[in-house]
Each structure stands twice: as C-alpha cells, then as structure tokens.
C-alpha cells in the first residue's frame, strides 16, 4: 500500500522506546501527525508524555524505534541530523526558558539569524511584527525578568514561531503559570491552531483540546492507552485508567 506523497504524515513515529537503565519510560509508542493537525497529549505524571515529546526533536535520545519527518527517517543518535531538524520543530517549555541576558527582541531574532533563515534586519522586523500581533510590541526592548510569567511564555511561543517552523511542540506550556495569565497563553495557542499550525501539545488543558484538537492522546505507563476525537474520548473513555484520570481532572477544568 503506497500512500500518495501529499497525505504522508508530517511526523511519524513507530516503535519508540526510551529506557533509563532498567526503567522503561517509553514502551513501543506509535504516533503520526499530519500537516495542519492539532494533537493534545494527556496523562498522569510519570506517564512518559514529556519524555515522548522531547524525543520528537531529539532533546532526549530514544533507545530504539524510528522518527520520520517529512518522509525522511532521522538516525536516532545523529546529533547533526537533529540540529538540522530542530528549526522545523519549534518547542515551548514549561518554564519559558527565555535567555535572561538578552532583550526580548534578541531572544526572538537570535536563532533565525544564526541558522541563516533571515538577515538580522529581517529577523528583527519579523520579531517586531510577531510581538505586535500578539500584543507585546512595547516589550521588545525589555528583559525577560521584567515580564510576567504569562508574557514570558507568549514571548517563548513567538521565539519558536520566528523560525517559521513546520510544527510546534508544547511541553506543559501553562502548568507553571498563574491562573489569570493562562488564558493569554491559551488564546495565542488557539489562534495558531485555527490558522493551520501543526501542533503537538502536552497539557492538561482539556478545554483547549476540546476546542481545537483533532485528536486527544492518553498516555500511561509509557504507552498510548487510548486516542481519538476529544469529545468521544472524554464522553466515552474505554479504559479504567482514563476514567480515573478524567475524574481527577474534572474539578480543575469544570
């Protein structure tokens, strides 16, 4: 069965395993995402979801399995191949991880210039445009410490966007934020999703998943236990563990 090139998945993962010594953090995970799709990954802590998303761009080296991006398989232990891939897979971290010694503008414009994706002037123009679009134009020359957590996380998203990535990975983007600033960050993410950005989101924000995710993935014990359309999965969980997980989550998202 040969699928036509057009509908080939953007990112395909099969049989991915990650072991820490004798402990298995990921156990033969298969996963695909097509261009323009949004996938939310949920699961209890220790389920392997963070490890999984970090294996997608090689921040952690998987023990075995394959990662295929745009039809090309990435050799797991080839750091140079990963470095080449990463600009196409933007990532947003839980703790924002802005560079504290650089201004907001430089934080955003640095990597595109280094990777030769833009001249310095172009990168700065683009950074300013993105900041303006997401309501942070006045912060261009501020330093990260002067911004609130929510503002920093929005900058981190813009920093990832500035590379013109083909997909964005989010590793618990809202779990370090104050409740009142979570909405600002989610609004940007919703905006991106509606504009066709391919996104993989590890997060417990069920509301976000319900609104825009094409697929919800539930992980536990290093495996994908269940996946499907968010409304189906939430309304009719099949496994005991998902029932349990949703029950604990309910009060927070009610």
């Amino acid at each position: 069965m040969t699928a036509p090139q057009a509908s080939a998945p953007l990112l395909a993962i099969s049989g991915l395993c990650k072991n820490y010594g004798a402990v298995s953090a990921l156990d033969h995970v298969d996963f695909e995402i097509e261009k323009g799709q949004v996938v939310s990954i949920i699961g209890p802590s220790g389920s392997g979801k963070s490890t999984f998303i970090r294996c997608m761009n090689g921040l952690e080296m998987a023990s075995s399995g394959t990662v295929t991006f745009e039809g090309r398989q990435i050799p797991l232990s080839n750091q140079r191949a990963w470095t080449k891939l990463r600009p196409d897979l933007g990532m947003v971290f839980q703790d924002y991880s802005l560079f504290p010694h650089l201004s907001i503008l430089r934080n955003i414009a640095l990597a595109p210039v280094l990777r030769g994706r833009a001249t310095k002037a172009e990168a700065q123009d683009r950074a300013l445009a993105l900041l303006a679009r997401f309501g942070l134009a006045d912060k261009a020359h501020a330093y990260p410490v002067e911004l609130s957590g929510g503002q920093q996380q929005r900058v981190a998203i813009i920093r990832a966007l500035a590379m013109n990535p083909k997909a964005l990975l989010f590793d618990e983007p809202t779990s370090a934020l104050d409740p009142e600033t979570i909405k600002d960050v989610l609004d940007i993410m919703l905006d991106l999703a509606r504009n066709g950005m391919t996104m993989i989101v590890v997060s417990h924000e069920i509301g976000f998943a319900r609104q825009v995710a094409d697929r919800l993935v539930f992980m536990a014990g290093g495996r994908i236990v269940e996946q499907g359309r968010p409304e189906d999965l939430i309304a009719r969980p099949q496994s005991e563990r998902l029932v349990e997980f949703l029950r604990h989550l309910a009060p927070r998202t009610a």
Binding site: N57, L59, T83, K84, L85, R86, P87, L89, G90, M91, F93, D95, S97, F99, L110, A111, L114, R115, A156, R159, A160, M163, L169
Partner: peptide
C-alpha cells in the same frame, strides 16, 4: 540552568 541549553538546542542552535 540546564533548560537554557535545551531551549537553545530546540531552536536549532
């Protein structure tokens, strides 16, 4: 902090 190097790596540096 370790995340600094990681997030730079994620940006393809």
């Amino acid at each position: 902090p370790r995340h600094q190097a990681q997030s730079a790596r994620a940006l393809g540096m």
